[in-house]
């Protein structure tokens, strides 16, 4: 019976591709075509509206001659590193502590998770007050009697970025905690029991056995947190509005003000391209290794 494949089989063959096609098409347009468009604008003299001429790398030269852009790049580096390290570390600690048969776990979990639900447009204001030396923590502690206590990072151009880190860590740790907690719950208890019977101390068990088993959770946390770090925008605007003296400028805020406030659309596009290239340099190898692994795995 060498008849041609029945129609239904051919549909079955093509259906998965057909189903995926719209998503692919949409992403090709909304991500990759738009990136090309931005690339084009970055090579043009566009100011208030897009212009489709060609001025070479002028806008990139202009971008890199702007001190504020240097601050932005430096800040992104400092912020991402600290944010990723602290959020991951604190999230893991919280998850481990919460995993010790805590009686009020549900409540505590909700407390750690709620910041993720709030928009920074206003929690920024609350943080602004808390960090303000004349209104917040410093004032309260001074009034309690420790008059020499100083906590005025937000007013210091060199330290203000760390305030942004504090608020960002506050917002996202709960999320990291949830993922780690889930990872811990997925670990077989007998492994831990066995180690305990052998007399290993609890911290040691966690360090040498449990944490290494959380590798997939670490990867998820890092992907999600990188996403949050790159997109940090509302946070900066609400907390410091890039101040004091542009000290907390970030690439996203720089791009926004160049394009929409300073009529330098070409410079804004150039900064977007720099950001994209940086992200690609970090993410593409990661994606490649992840996908390669999963292909090997199956």
């Amino acid at each position: 019976m060498s008849r041609p494949t029945p129609l239904s089989n051919r549909i079955e063959h093509w259906l998965p591709r057909l189903v995926l096609a719209p998503s692919l098409l949409v992403v090709l347009v909304a991500v990759y075509l738009f990136i090309c468009w931005t690339g084009w604008i970055s090579l043009s003299s566009s100011m208030i509206v897009p212009k489709y001429d060609f001025v070479g790398l002028n806008q990139y030269v202009r971008l890199w001659s702007t001190p504020r852009w240097h601050t932005a790049v430096f800040n992104l580096f400092v912020f991402s590193t600290l944010f990723l390290a602290l959020t991951t570390g604190l999230g893991l600690l919280m998850a481990i502590l919460l995993d010790q048969k805590i009686r009020v776990e549900g409540t505590l979990r909700a407390i750690f998770l709620y910041p993720m639900a709030l928009s920074f447009i206003v929690t920024g204001t609350a943080w602004k007050w808390i960090l303000n030396p004349a209104l917040g923590v410093q004032k309260v502690i001074n009034e309690l009697g420790w008059t020499s206590f100083v906590f005025d990072w937000i007013a210091q151009p060199t330290f203000a970025i760390y305030c942004v880190v504090i608020a960002a860590v506050w917002q996202s740790t709960g999320f990291a905690m949830a993922i780690f907690l889930a990872g811990l719950r997925g670990i077989d208890n007998s492994v831990i029991k066995a180690a305990q019977i052998e007399g290993a101390s609890l911290p040691r068990i966690y360090r040498t056995i449990v944490v290494p088993m959380l590798r997939p959770a670490f990867l998820s946390v890092i992907v999600l947190l990188s996403y949050i770090a790159i997109k940090s925008f509302d946070l900066i605007l609400a907390l410091t509005n890039t101040g004091p003296g542009s000290a907390t400028e970030m690439p996203s805020t720089f791009m926004y003000s160049a394009t929409f406030r300073r009529d330098q659309m070409g410079v804004g596009a150039a900064s977007a391209m720099m950001m994209l290239m940086t992200v690609a340099a970090i993410i593409v190898p990661y994606l490649y290794s992840e996908l390669k692994e999963s292909r090997d795995g199956h």
């Binding site: 909304a30 738009f34 990136i35 992907v223 990188s226 996403y227 790159i230 977007a272 950001m275 993410i283």
Partner: peptide, 8 residues
């Protein structure tokens, strides 16, 4: 996922 939305 990692596209900065300000750019699009």
């Amino acid at each position: 996922c990692f596209l900065p939305f300000q750019a699009v």
